[in-house]
Amino acid sequence: MIEWFTWVQLAVAVAAGLVCIVLGLAGRAPNDVTNGALALVEVLLVVQLVVAIAAPAFGNEATGSLLEFYTYLVGALLLPPGAIFWGLLERSRWSTVVLGVAALAVAVMVYRMLQIWTVQQA
């Protein structure tokens, strides 16, 4: 896990979450901006997955439980597509709020992943 990348990812997820919730409460249905923000969150998660798989080969080992780490990562990967799909079923303001909730949940999970990789002792 690359720490600075993870912090960037965390910032993007939080920002995407707040933007979607604000736009949703302001009455906007999901649009290219909100779905794009979630797509970006998803792309960063995929990058994180690649980094996590490659990192141990470069001596960057997780201190904590890899099982737990990957459970969070796989769970997080499911959220943005799920939220976008859920939003497409009914394009209302609340679907935009759902996108925000999903992005914030991803942020929490990424933070937890960072703890597992750097702090938690297996």
């Binding site: 737990e68 769970g75 939220a83 859920w86 209302s92 609340w94 679907s95 999903a102 949940a105």
Partner: peptide, 24 residues
């Protein structure tokens, strides 16, 4: 419909979290 979709989404996230933790 409406705000109920947010409720379901939060339920879904909690279900995922509980499932993941329980699995581990």
């Amino acid at each position: 419909s409406g705000i109920g979709r947010v409720l379901v989404a939060v339920y879904g996230v909690l279900a995922l979290a509980a499932l993941g933790r329980s699995f581990v």
